[in-house]
Design a protein around this nucleic acid. Structure first.
Lengths: 148, 148
DNA sequence: TAACTTTGACTTTCTTTGACTATTATATAA
DNA sequence: TTATATAATAGTCAAAGAAAGTCAAAGTTA
């Protein structure tokens, strides 16, 4: 576990049951003995909307960073997700979506793993590299449609 | 016994009773006084799913290589199925296997649908027809390994 | 000779750091 | 009271650092 992972865990722990929490970037940085911008790094890689979080902040005196959990209607979510998808999808982007679906309880852990594995770079290894992302997008969309 | 064999033994020893271990590629390479990529060689030749292992890793600071034993407590069924599978699988053959897995309660209905959809002829439509059955076999095998 | 092993140069991914910028609240000056 | 300076925050971005991955050439061995 690196520092970013530790900070991530700390924040998730702090949110826990709450709907949202308010942090002081500089305090948190001091707590973990890192530069303040590392907090931004952690937030921008681990508390993104795709993972079910929403972040607001304010600068200046009394500034803060507020992290909230977001909740969504499942059907709407699936539909809008399908619309959003293009004809290409990398494995990492897919995994982000899967985590998002997980976060909203639209799929369970096992299903996420199955999909991720089925369409991993490894599984599609025999497909031309250029086409892999297209095949993945096709398949993923078909699955989402079935899930509705 | 060559170096790769020794490293293999070392890792197997380290896993021993454990479910999984986390290695640092560079540390291990130092321990055995070899180049880091030799660790990849050992892993890719001796810790493959067919031999009962699966491997995950992460690059960058705090990176690691995690090797897990595929647990024995789970159905031998999956293992023997994996061994049985060839390098080609049509959609209809896959669906037969899925129904079988369903019958043994190894997967649930939803998972079966997801897999079937993910690897349907439609989903793989962009893959050359000749390769579709190979890709499906690869992917299916990877899924089975994950299911263990 | 064919298969397996060892090596190393190059690539990719993820993290950490720090200099510089932008915004907000508060104190001070006009 | 209003404008301005100052301090207190947070944001951005790119460079440096820290792993792991890939691939092909060279070496070994059966």
């Amino acid at each position: 576990m690196n520092l970013s992972d530790i900070i991530e865990e700390y924040i998730k722990n702090a949110i826990d049951e709450e709907e949202a929490i308010e942090l002081k970037r500089s305090e948190l940085a001091q707590t973990f003995n890192c530069v303040p911008s590392q907090i931004n790094y952690v937030i921008s890689t681990r508390f993104i909307p795709e993972l079910g979080f929403y972040v607001e902040s304010k600068r200046g005196g009394g500034g803060y960073i507020k992290i909230s959990r977001i909740s969504h209607s499942k059907a709407d979510f699936l539909k809008s997700l399908i619309c959003k998808l293009g004809s290409n999808m990398s494995q990492s982007v897919m995994d982000v979506y899967l985590r998002e679906l997980l976060g909203y309880n639209i799929i369970d852990e096992k299903t996420a793993v199955v999909i991720s594995t089925a369409l991993s770079e490894k599984s599609l290894g025999q497909v031309d590299k250029i086409k892999r992302d297209q095949v993945r997008a096709d398949s993923f969309k078909n699955i989402l449609v079935k899930l509705i």
